[in-house]
């Protein structure tokens, strides 16, 4: 039930502008915390601008898609869709500079595998990653809780795939289209690109599905307009069809824009810039990160030490004599 879901309640946004504003705010917040002493004019020479952050996120979305395509064992579509949702949700309220998208991306996919009941162990999962697998394991498991927390533990995602099935069943039953299965390749292509856009944060899954079906039909020079206006919505939709047509049009034009190829030179430049300005506390290669992890470990040890010291002092006071301090206290 999408209308009663957390996705509908908390993760649907009114407009692209609203989304951009939230992302800008995340960017500002990061800069305020980490670049307080910096002058406004030189600030963006060091830090990423909101625009640049968006480009980074876009690029890693492409990476995410390719990673999922190459994943062994092959993963179902809903895992890909859910990972995209998680990834987008995370960077609405967080800055790329704070958490590197490379790390969040794999964490999103790993979590999506779990939520969508696609059972892979962490070993199996990191087997798909090039490079240091042990480090990757650490990164994924360390970030998993953070990711869930940032999404407010709203984990269930309504993807547009099932609505597509529903629409196809309906078209086969009530529509007059000849062999609706022909639409499938077009629909799949459309949905794949739709995941790369913000459309899934702005429109309900059934709207996206409808747009995909209509798009695929128009590619085949078929017309489903009368099915949509008369059969599907009929009396229920009177007066609201305008909105729906606008929504479908909006989704289709967003998807059309999805295919811009990224600029290689700009990418390299951004990578370098990010390497310099990213928050060292969350960079697993940095000294500060290692220190912080060590501190967390030490904290546990300290706690243990204080507790045992307390116990010891209590023991000795109860016995009313002084025992030479044991080595762990000293």
């Amino acid at each position: 039930m999408f209308p009663t879901s957390t996705q509908c309640k908390y993760w649907m946004f009114g407009s692209e502008e609203e989304l951009n504003k939230l992302r800008e705010r995340a960017n500002q917040k990061h800069i305020q915390i980490h670049g307080r002493q910096m002058n406004d004019s030189v600030k963006y020479e060091f830090f990423l601008t909101p625009e640049e952050e968006k480009i980074m996120v876009k690029r890693y979305e492409l990476h995410l898609r390719d990673f999922c395509k190459r994943f062994q064992p092959p993963m179902p579509r809903c895992v890909v869709g859910t990972s995209f949702h998680y990834f987008k949700r995370f960077y609405i309220h967080n800055s790329v500079m704070n958490y590197h998208p490379k790390e969040i991306m794999v964490t999103c996919i790993y979590l999506a595998c779990k939520v969508e009941e696609f059972n892979v162990s962490i070993q199996q999962f990191v087997a798909n990653i090039k490079g240091d697998r042990e480090k990757a394991t650490d990164i994924i498991l360390n970030n998993e809780l953070l990711l869930m927390e940032q999404m407010n533990f709203h984990l269930s995602i309504h993807n547009p795939f099932r609505p597509v099935e529903g629409l196809l069943i309906d078209i086969k039953t009530r529509g007059s289209l000849h062999d609706p299965e022909r639409l499938r390749p077009g629909i799949e292509h459309f949905l794949e690109r739709a995941l790369l856009t913000d459309a899934i944060l702005l429109y309900s899954p059934s709207q996206v599905a409808l747009a995909a079906v209509l798009h695929a039909a128009s590619k085949l020079q078929e017309n489903l307009d009368s099915y949509v206006t008369d059969t599907l919505f009929g009396e229920d939709g009177r007066g609201k069809l305008e909105d729906l047509i606008d929504a479908v049009r909006g989704i289709r034009s967003m998807v059309k824009m999805a295919d811009s190829t990224p600029d290689r030179n700009q990418q390299k430049m951004l990578d370098k810039k990010l390497e310099k300005c990213r928050n060292p506390e969350n960079n697993p290669d940095s000294e500060i990160y290692k220190k912080r992890m060590q501190a967390i470990l030490d904290e546990d040890d300290d706690l243990y030490n204080t507790i045992s010291a307390q116990n010891h002092s209590m023991d000795s006071s109860a016995l009313n004599m002084s025992i030479p301090a044991s080595p762990e206290v000293a």
Partner: peptide, 24 residues
């Protein structure tokens, strides 16, 4: 159900009338 639920945008939500489509 999934195909039809939520297809007509947000009848009860406040955002329904304020929705602006940018890419027309």
């Amino acid at each position: 159900q999934d195909g039809s639920h939520g297809a007509l945008p947000f009848q009860e939500n406040t955002g329904s009338t304020l929705r602006i489509i940018y890419y027309v």
